Amino acid sequence: TCPLCKTELNIGSKDPPNFNTCTECKNQVCNLCGFNPTPHLTEIQEWLCLNCQTQRA
């Protein structure tokens, strides 16, 4: 489950994953609780959960 919103993560499912791993804290959170803060920078593959995003802001 997502630590932030308690959504079930579909780990091991044949569906596309509905979660990602935060590059900062390494927690697995669902796609609604994390995002790529710099989608225009292709050389930085970063994906932050809302916790890390808030701490950085």
Rank of each mutant, 00 (worst) to 15 (best):
C2I: 00
C2Y: 00
C2D: 02
P3L: 04
P3I: 09
P3T: 10
L4G: 13
L4Y: 08
L4V: 04
L4K: 02
L4Q: 12
L4H: 12
L4D: 15
C5K: 02
C5Y: 00
C5G: 01
K6A: 08
T7G: 11
T7Q: 12
T7K: 12
T7I: 04
T7M: 04
E8D: 07
E8F: 03
E8G: 09
L9R: 06
N10H: 02
I11L: 05
I11E: 15
G12C: 13
G12Y: 07
G12T: 12
G12Q: 04
S13V: 03
S13M: 11
K14L: 02
K14P: 07
K14M: 07
D15A: 07
D15I: 11
D15Y: 14
D15P: 04
D15K: 10
D15V: 11
P16D: 01
P16H: 11
P16V: 03
P17D: 07
P17Y: 02
N18A: 06
F19L: 07
F19S: 04
F19N: 12
N20K: 14
N20Y: 04
N20H: 08
N20V: 13
T21K: 15
T21Y: 14
C22E: 02
T23K: 10
E24P: 02
E24F: 04
E24S: 07
E24R: 11
E24G: 11
C25T: 02
C25L: 01
K26S: 14
K26A: 15
K26D: 13
Q28T: 10
Q28F: 06
Q28S: 11
Q28P: 08
Q28E: 06
Q28Y: 06
V29A: 09
V29Q: 05
V29K: 04
V29M: 10
V29C: 12
C30D: 03
C30R: 02
C30Q: 02
C30T: 02
C30M: 01
C30W: 00
C30A: 02
N31M: 07
N31W: 06
N31H: 14
L32P: 07
L32C: 10
C33H: 13
C33K: 01
G34H: 03
G34M: 02
G34R: 08
G34F: 10
F35C: 12
N36H: 15
N36E: 14
N36Y: 05
P37H: 03
T38A: 13
P39I: 11
P39G: 05
P39A: 11
H40P: 13
H40R: 13
T42N: 14
T42L: 08
E43N: 07
E43V: 06
E43A: 10
I44H: 06
Q45Y: 12
Q45I: 10
Q45V: 12
E46D: 03
E46L: 07
E46A: 06
E46C: 04
E46N: 05
W47I: 09
W47Y: 03
L48P: 04
L48G: 03
L48V: 06
C49Q: 00
C49K: 00
C49W: 00
C49F: 01
L50P: 15
N51I: 02
N51K: 09
N51H: 07
N51P: 04
C52K: 01
C52E: 03
C52Q: 01
C52L: 00
T54F: 01
